[in-house]
Design a protein around this nucleic acid. Structure first.
Length: 812
RNA sequence: GCCGAAGUGGUGGAAUUGGCAGACGCGCCGGACUCAAAAUCCGGUGAUGGCGACAUCGUGCGGGUUCAAGUCCCGCCUUCGGCACCA
């Protein structure tokens, strides 16, 4: 078969007949399959794209053949830094390069032969899309979920922009790996923390990889404990957050973050200089160094004291940079005996160490003792309580005295979305001298991104120097106003694109809730695991926020999620230009065809795992497809009218239905490699039957078996399957036929083979009737001559019979 | 340090969740067809010992539970992902 031309032929026919158009009248049977959309980079589609889109298209086609009205759209995540960086280097405008790249990628994606419905395509950089991104911003603003504040932010000096916490990896910029510095800037935030608890709880309701859910749980980082209030001698009050209130009697000092506002106020004159020096020092230390757990603890004494509310003791107040101002209250109680960090600190500065918890069983007595135990040495009613009881009881007791309360904290921070970059969606806010911060009215959207902008970096937002953009009229007072020169993080665009797809051309709204509430949630979402704590978390947040605003009626955007593995270079490393280990699919596709390439990707790897690329076996896939074609040709040659269903036909029919059953199960579970293996076995059986029966075969039965083979293969090799179906005289299209359904009756055998073990060692195989019960099986087994001789003169202790599995005879 | 995943032939990878380890491929060996080659078809292929039927060993390492462990439990090692002074 001329694979290359066959592909062209069917791609044209599919496009002409609009085979993959979503039929809205069948919305009841909708099945929304979504692959994470692509970033339109200059490079061609790489093996990773194919690995993402090929197998998931196979899945989509399988669902289609199961009678689902499959909605499988495709689009482009088109804003972003790479296009802008490329522009800085080459002088080519990001819009021009992006649109050109999109055109190229569209062609490549179509050449893959995936069943995308291109009528719903979206490109996030187009005004008809980002208009609605801005609209969503305004809704968040209206509902107090978007706010501006000055905060220390992560600044990448190379990209000249702030980064979200999620985009800082090991203290460096996720993209360019430049060390991130701290900067105080006024920036826009989305209040994702308001949904921390629900984002956590919701994980239990969705079918996602456990690993990804664990990562999100971790990222949200819930911890329950209490806030305890300490009063300074000066009368000032501050609280600490602790999860171990059971140890509060052991406080030997309290420690504030260097940035804590109280520090300057309470520091005694005598210590002013040293505290100032310490704070100065902290500001100089890089974020990575400060975060290092191995670094020796540092700190400085303020000279001030406060009162421990549980026992009235006077404790010294220190500052130290191991306390983070951004978490909890920015202040911590130091319990040297029961916390490793506090222990180190106390040892270094020679502070008191007092034990107030002992082990439950009197075992380990080393300090620091950080496990839960039993409270001791406090001389109060709490002595003898377990840590678990005590940590609640003590806080409640303090609460009565107005000195504390139960408290839950999350590590999740609000999402910083301002970017000092050009190629993104403008923030729809203007600043008026009189009225301050004013949202752009919805009727004035979009706030268009101007084309003529100097985007060479100068430490400020490129838009800031574009007067035509910056000058605006205040919607409230009509006076002069300035626009926000920043653009939104591109993750904002991708946080709602799955909502736009089903109503992609709506120019009155971001989406019609009527449609979206029927089409969503996404039934199967497929994409890389690297988005666990970014895109996948943000999208969940958007969904919940829009639900609370009344637009959506569902809680979670992606009901079921699958991560494909990564195809590594042949050297076992991640493919990258710098390593020079990139495998281009084109070489293989032009030689073997896209079907063969896709089939190879599915057969050669475990989809979830991925692995290093190796072309070993690429040829054998082509051989297999040719083998399939030959057996299809054989079916066409048969024309006798034998109708027998004898042992050989029954055996083949068994394999046929067993294959149907297993392939369907495997496809549902994204286990493509085993599904292909089952089909190969089936082909082997077809050959066996063909050669064993010669011209005496049941031709119509054989042909039916071959038809099923073509249907089974259709999702895997769509072009070839259309061609083979045509050869067999089938109607167009094979994708409008139903996937074969297993006939359970064909799987019922009269008898089956069963393994017999003697003392857990395989000794014989026996044939037993399918309906034999344990007792009958035991009799048959014990009469078997090999079994008898293996038992010899041993005594049978007991016989374990597991029908359909095995028999184990235990002897002495 | 914490969380998660993984470790199986020469090789990619299977194993119905505790039940015949190594499915299906690749590679290798052999056979058929052929004057020959290619293509194709058929068979063999974990290791060790034995002419042999067979026996022993075998899923990262060490223990354990069980009639039965790749799978469960305890203790380690290695690799890969994620988090990391979060009080």
């Amino acid at each position: 078969m001329d694979f290359i031309n066959v592909e062209k032929k069917w791609q044209k026919k599919w496009a002409d007949s609009k085979l993959y158009s979503f039929d809205k009248s069948k919305i009841k049977d909708k099945y929304y399959v979504l692959e994470m959309f692509s970033y339109p980079s200059g490079a061609k589609l790489h093996a990773g794209h194919w690995y993402n889109y090929g197998p998931s298209d196979t899945f989509a086609r399988f669902m289609r053949m199961n009678g689902k009205e499959v909605f499988q759209p495709m689009g482009f995540d088109a804003f972003g830094l790479p296009a802008e960086n490329y522009a800085i280097k080459s002088g080519i405008h990001p819009q021009d390069s992006t649109l050109k790249n999109i055109a190229t990628m569209e062609g490549q994606l179509k050449a893959m032969g995936a069943s995308f419905d291109w009528d719903y395509e979206i490109k996030t950089c187009m005004p008809d899309y980002y208009k609605w991104t801005q609209w969503i911003f305004l809704q968040l603003y209206k509902h107090n979920l978007a706010y501006r504040k000055e905060a220390p932010v992560n600044w990448c000096p190379s990209c000249n922009t702030v980064l979200a916490n999620e985009q800082v990896v090991d203290g460096a910029c996720e993209r360019c790996h430049t060390t991130v510095i701290r900067k105080n800037l006024t920036q826009w935030f989305f209040k994702i923390t308001q949904y921390a608890e629900e984002l956590l709880q919701g994980l239990d309701t969705i079918d996602w990889p456990e690993k990804t859910k664990a990562m999100q749980r971790n990222w949200i980082g819930k911890s329950t404990g209490g806030e305890i209030e300490f009063t300074c001698e000066s009368g000032d009050k501050f609280s600490v957050f602790t999860t171990r209130a059971d140890t509060v009697f052991g406080v030997s000092y309290v420690i504030l973050a260097p940035e804590h506002p109280l520090v300057d106020k309470i520091t005694t004159d005598e210590h002013k200089a040293s505290i100032a020096a310490y704070k100065d020092n902290c500001a100089k230390i890089s974020e990575i160094d400060r975060m290092s757990t191995t670094r020796e603890k540092t700190g400085a004494f303020t000279g001030a004291y406060c009162i421990n509310p549980v026992n009235g003791e006077k404790v010294p107040i220190w500052i130290g940079d191991y306390v983070l101002y951004s978490y909890g209250t920015g202040a911590v109680m130091g319990v040297a005996a029961h916390d490793e960090r506090d222990y180190d600190f106390a040892k270094k500065f020679d502070l008191q160490i007092r034990r107030v918890v002992k082990s439950k069983d009197g075992g380990n007595d080393d300090l620091p003792y950080c496990d839960y135990g039993v409270i001791c040495n406090t001389g109060t009613q709490f002595d003898g309580m377990t840590s678990e009881e005590g940590k609640v009881a003590i806080v409640k007791w303090l609460e009565e005295k107005n000195n504390g309360r139960l408290k839950t904290n999350y590590r999740l921070r609000d999402w910083l979305i301002s970017r000092q970059r050009y190629w993104g969606a403008p923030i729809p806010i203007v600043y008026c001298d009189k009225c301050g911060e004013v949202p752009v009215p919805e009727k004035d959207l979009p706030v268009s991104l101007p084309y003529n902008v100097e985007f060479k970096p100068n430490g400020k937002s490129p838009l800031a120097s574009c007067e035509e953009f910056m000058n605006a009229t205040c919607p409230k007072c009509g006076g002069k106003a300035r626009r926000d020169p920043d653009t939104m993080d591109t993750f904002v665009c991708s946080s709602w694109y799955y909502l736009r797809y089903p109503d992609a051309h709506n120019d009155k709204a971001a989406f019609d809730p009527e449609i979206v509430n029927k089409m969503l949630p996404v039934d199967k979402y497929i994409g890389g695991a690297e988005h666990a704590c970014m895109h996948l978390l943000y999208a969940r947040f958007f969904t919940k926020a829009l639900r609370d605003m009344g637009y959506l009626k569902f809680d979670e955007p992606f009901k079921s999620l699958v991560h494909q593995g990564t195809i590594l270079g042949p050297d076992g490393f991640k493919m990258s230009k710098s390593r020079g280990n990139i495998i281009s699919p084109d070489d293989y596709v032009s030689k073997f065809g896209s079907d063969a390439f896709r089939l190879y990707l599915m057969f050669g790897f475990s989809y979830i795992e991925g692995g290093p690329w190796s072309a070993n076996g690429m040829e054998s896939i082509t051989k297999f497809l040719e083998r399939v074609e030959r057996i299809v040709d054989r079916a066409n040659l048969q024309n006798n009218d034998n109708q027998q269903m004898d042992a050989q036909e029954k055996a083949l029919n068994y394999t046929r239905n067993y294959t149907i059953k297993r392939v369907s199960e495997d496809l549902g579970a994204f286990s493509f490699n085993t599904a292909v293996a089952r089909i190969m076995e089936y082909v082997n059986e077809l050959y066996k039957y063909d050669s064993a029966t010669g011209d005496k075969k049941n031709a119509s039965f054989f042909k039916a078996c071959i038809s099923d083979l073509v249907l089974l293969l259709a999702p895997f090799v769509p072009h070839i399957a259309e061609e083979l179906n045509e050869k067999l005289g089938g109607k167009y299209s094979v994708f409008e036929m139903r996937y074969p359904v297993c006939d359970e009756n064909a799987l019922v055998k009269d008898e089956y083979e069963l393994a017999v073990q003697i003392n857990s060692r395989m000794k014989a195989k026996i044939i037993v009737p399918s309906d034999a019960d344990a007792k009958e099986i035991e009799e048959i087994a014990l009469q078997n001559t090999s079994v008898k001789s293996a038992i010899g003169d041993m005594n049978i202790v007991k016989v374990i019979v597991i029908p359909k599995r095995l028999v184990n005879v235990v002897c002495k």
